[in-house]
Each structure stands twice: as C-alpha cells, then as structure tokens.
C-alpha cells in the first residue's frame, strides 16, 4: 500500500510540475484536440490566406466601387459619400476654396458626439482642452503640437480643419482612414465650442446669467 501511495504521489507531483497551475503564463497556443469544427474553411478578417493574390483576407474595395450607404443629412439636404460636396471634401463644390462653416446642423447631440470623438482621437496630443498640452507633450516626446486656441486656427475655415484631420498636416498624421466623415465634422463643432469657452468672456452671457455670476 505504501508503494502504491508513493507512486501515486510522485505521479501527481510530476504532472503538477510539468503542467503547472491554471492560468500560468504560457507562450504555447492552446491545444485543440479535434479542431475540425473549430477551425473551418472560411476567411476571417485580418488573417493571412493565399486565396487572394496579396495573401490577406481583408481586401480594399476595387477602385470605383461605392459602398452601399445612407446619405448624410446636411444643412443643404442629403448627401451621399461619393458626391463632390463640402461635407465630403471640405471644399466648396467645384472649387478649391474651403467651406467656412460646418455643413452639418450643429446640435447638442453633435457636440456630444464631437466631444467623445475628440477625447478618443485628439486628446493624446492636443490635450483635453485643445491647448496642445496632451500627454505626449507633457512627457516631452512630442514638442511641437499645435495649440488649437491659436488665433490662426480660431480664424481658420472649418473646411481647412476638416482637411487637416482628413489628410494630416506637416507632423500630424492623417485621421481620414480612422475617423468617419460625420465624426470629423462633429469634432470640428466641438473644437469651435472649446475655442469659444477659451476666448469668451462673461460679457457674452445673457444678462440674467451674468448677474447670477456676480
């Protein structure tokens, strides 16, 4: 009996020593004993597969295709993503002049959306206040981030800011690929609100609110 127990204990110790505790960090992929249903012959996004010539499963749409989509509701009516309209390009149709103001109706909901998107995409560099003091500046790794309250940017046409977000400018990268068109205009509306809150004075308030402040 003693031997049986001894053998059992050593075996338990050996298994435990090799296999370890649940949840220990391991470089090896999980074992799948019968993987035929788990891993089927179908393409998953962002994987490597030689079905397409460039070995990617995620493909760019062929040139000239138009995604099935809903129009964006602008102040001058609905606009589809393929149209040459200010909301898509930032330019006045048919010219290379930037549109002066936001083509979307600026509502509290749009500002809220703009705030959310600004805090995701712009705060790391421009800071939550837009003053250019984001975390990258504080760490000293990115010295030349623009201050969005600079008079030059306050006076800038909305279309030019749209262009900066879409294509980037000098050291700032392009956010066109990651931020959808509507979110870009929402961000611009929010940036305008930030600028107002920065440059505004109590004289801009209606008289009753001003009295309440005093």
């Amino acid at each position: 009996m003693r031997y049986v127990l001894l053998i059992l204990l050593t075996m338990v110790a050996v298994v435990f020593g090799i296999a370890g505790l649940r949840g220990h960090l391991s470089r090896k992929p999980p074992v799948e004993i019968i993987p035929d249903m788990n891993r089927q012959f179908k393409l998953r996004p962002e994987a490597a597969d030689n079905f397409f010539a460039n070995d990617h499963t995620s493909q760019l749409p062929p040139p000239g295709t138009i995604p099935r989509s809903r129009p964006i509701q602008t102040l001058s009516g609905p606009v589809y993503p393929y149209e040459d309209a200010p909301v898509n390009t930032g330019f006045i149709t048919g010219t290379t002049n930037f549109v002066a103001t936001n083509p979307l109706p600026v509502t509290p909901a749009l500002l809220q959306q703009g705030r959310e998107q600004f805090e995701i995409f712009c705060t790391p560099c421009h800071g939550a206040l837009g003053d250019g003091n984001g975390i990258t500046k504080k760490l000293g790794v990115m010295p030349s981030v623009a201050n969005l309250h600079d008079p030059r940017i306050v006076d800038m046409a909305d279309g030019e800011i749209f262009n900066t977000i879409t294509h980037g400018k000098n050291l700032m990268g392009a956010y066109g690929p990651t931020v959808p068109v509507q979110d870009r205009w929402a961000i611009i509306a929010y940036v305008r609100a930030l600028q107002l809150s920065w440059l505004g004075s109590t004289n801009d308030l209606p008289p009753d609110l001003r009295a309440a402040l005093k």
């Binding site: 649940r22 960090l25 391991s26 999980p30 074992v31």
Partner: peptide, 15 residues
C-alpha cells in the same frame, strides 16, 4: 483541472 479552457487558454501570452 486540466482538460478545460480555464487551463488551456487562460494565460496564453504569445511572443
């Protein structure tokens, strides 16, 4: 204890 994803998956940390 071992034949479960709680063991086989948890802790997977590829290089």
């Amino acid at each position: 204890y071992y034949f479960t994803p709680k063991y086989s998956r948890v802790g997977y940390e590829p290089i």
